[in-house]
Amino acid sequence: MAQTSSAHRVSHFFAKGTDPDELSKALSTSRTSLTAHPAANNDIAFECEFASAGPITLGLCRYEGEMRIKRQSEADNIIILLPRYGRLVLEASAGEILSTPARGVIVEASQDGSLHFLEDRQHLAIAIDQKELRNQLTQILEAPVPGSLEFAREIDLTAGPGMSLMQLATTLYAGLTRDAPLRRAPLALSSLSNGLMQLLLETVPHRLSSEMARTGSSPIPRHVKRAIEFMRANLSAPVTMQQLAAACGVSARTLQQSFRQFKMTTPMAYLHHLRLEAAHRELIQANPGQTVADIALKWGFIHLGRFAADYRARFGELPSHTLRTRAPGGSQ
């Protein structure tokens, strides 16, 4: 399911047929290859309509016949299947999960496995870029969020959060297809897209759910706040662990422990995160003639190759791409 950039441009795609190769092509993207395999001596048919907006792609898909759809490569997204009728089994190394009209499933692209369609099936599929989910979590937790989010793999669709997720996804999909008005309302589209991701992060258990709950209920210690204030005031200057601890009036050990408890990282890793954010902002707003090397060195990144790798891991693109396409006067 092809995805567009985070600018929330809307794209639309329709596929229908009986050829497994055509279905494989319709479901694959430039980053993820999927293949459809009908059961022996079994004919299949499919009809899928996809709409993409920024980091989210939604598709209403109808399948006929028993088949397996297997992923051939990894991608950094999650796929949520919200069934309307029919059963399928998510097959993975961690076990099998049966999806029915009362139970949705979440597939993380880093997992092994396949989808085994047991019978005719229709579901609403949501593909979300995990980078965008991590960005939202970073804002909530005020700390870098690396790696897979490891969502729970089942969603109860009969009540509570699952029902709300189904309703919001249905509304968003209806507003994106064909000539629906949401396609011409970018602010409303962005709000609904962000709302869907926020609902997912707040209501479906994942690796950092407890940290989200703690952020809302536990005040951050004063010495941690002081450390962050000192970091922000000295982002472009050399800063040592000893200087941080002295500025906060605590030992380096205490500061390390507090950052691990309340920010899920170390003080120096948090400083690195703030500097990446600062470099990102300046690359977006760079003046003509500024280079990646200039900006990297300003924010304390001496090793340009390592800076580029860390930047790409955080923002999903190389710093040169940000400078080229988003800075004033850059190509759009």
Score class of each variant (00 low, 15 high):
residue 277 E to W: 00
residue 237 A to C: 06
residue 195 G to M: 07
residue 207 R to V: 04
residue 235 L to C: 01
residue 246 A to H: 03
residue 229 E to V: 09
residue 236 S to Y: 06
residue 238 P to S: 05
residue 233 A to R: 15
residue 273 H to G: 07
residue 269 A to S: 15
residue 256 Q to C: 00
residue 198 Q to S: 13
residue 194 N to L: 04
residue 254 T to Q: 10
residue 187 L to A: 15
residue 250 V to F: 02
residue 190 S to G: 07
residue 217 S to E: 12
residue 271 L to F: 09
residue 247 A to F: 02
residue 238 P to D: 02
residue 203 T to L: 00
residue 272 H to P: 00
residue 225 K to C: 08
residue 185 A to T: 06
residue 205 P to A: 02
residue 200 L to D: 00
residue 177 T to N: 03
residue 209 S to Q: 13
residue 267 P to K: 11
residue 184 R to D: 10
residue 232 R to N: 10
residue 190 S to Y: 08
residue 229 E to F: 07
residue 215 T to V: 10
residue 181 P to E: 02
residue 262 F to R: 14
residue 214 R to H: 10
residue 229 E to P: 02
residue 242 Q to K: 14
residue 253 R to N: 11
residue 274 L to W: 03
residue 228 I to D: 07
residue 241 M to I: 09
residue 265 T to C: 13
residue 263 K to H: 15
residue 195 G to L: 06
residue 214 R to G: 08
residue 193 S to A: 15
residue 253 R to A: 14
residue 218 S to A: 15
residue 193 S to L: 06
residue 191 S to W: 05
residue 240 T to P: 01
residue 281 R to Q: 13
residue 267 P to V: 10
residue 203 T to P: 01
residue 185 A to R: 14
residue 240 T to H: 03
residue 212 M to R: 14
residue 236 S to F: 02
residue 257 Q to F: 09
residue 234 N to W: 04
residue 264 M to C: 10
residue 217 S to H: 12
residue 180 A to H: 05
residue 203 T to M: 00
residue 179 D to W: 02
residue 269 A to N: 15
residue 260 R to Q: 14
residue 237 A to S: 13
residue 210 S to T: 01
residue 198 Q to A: 13
residue 265 T to I: 06
residue 197 M to S: 11
residue 246 A to M: 05
residue 266 T to P: 00
residue 183 R to F: 02
residue 222 R to N: 11
residue 191 S to R: 12
residue 196 L to K: 08
residue 269 A to T: 12
residue 221 P to Q: 11
residue 250 V to G: 01
residue 262 F to V: 11
residue 276 L to E: 09
residue 227 A to F: 06
residue 258 S to N: 09
residue 282 E to K: 15
residue 244 L to V: 11
residue 214 R to E: 12
residue 189 L to S: 01
residue 202 E to Q: 12
residue 241 M to K: 15
residue 195 G to Y: 08
residue 236 S to H: 11
residue 278 A to P: 02
residue 272 H to G: 12
residue 197 M to N: 08
residue 224 V to D: 08
residue 191 S to H: 13
residue 250 V to I: 05
residue 217 S to N: 11
residue 262 F to D: 10
residue 233 A to L: 07
residue 182 L to M: 09
residue 254 T to S: 11
residue 185 A to Q: 15
residue 232 R to S: 07
residue 234 N to P: 03
residue 215 T to K: 04
residue 267 P to R: 14
residue 180 A to L: 03
residue 243 Q to A: 14
residue 255 L to N: 09
residue 275 R to W: 07
residue 271 L to P: 01
residue 265 T to K: 10
residue 217 S to I: 12
residue 273 H to A: 12
residue 250 V to Y: 03
residue 275 R to A: 09
residue 274 L to V: 03
residue 253 R to S: 14
residue 243 Q to S: 07
residue 215 T to A: 09
residue 276 L to A: 10
residue 249 G to W: 01
residue 194 N to K: 11
residue 268 M to Q: 15
residue 231 M to S: 01
residue 262 F to M: 10
residue 234 N to S: 04
residue 274 L to A: 07
residue 178 R to N: 09
residue 227 A to K: 05
residue 210 S to A: 11
residue 267 P to G: 11
residue 233 A to T: 09
residue 189 L to T: 05
residue 277 E to T: 09
residue 266 T to G: 15
residue 189 L to Y: 06
residue 209 S to N: 04
residue 181 P to T: 05
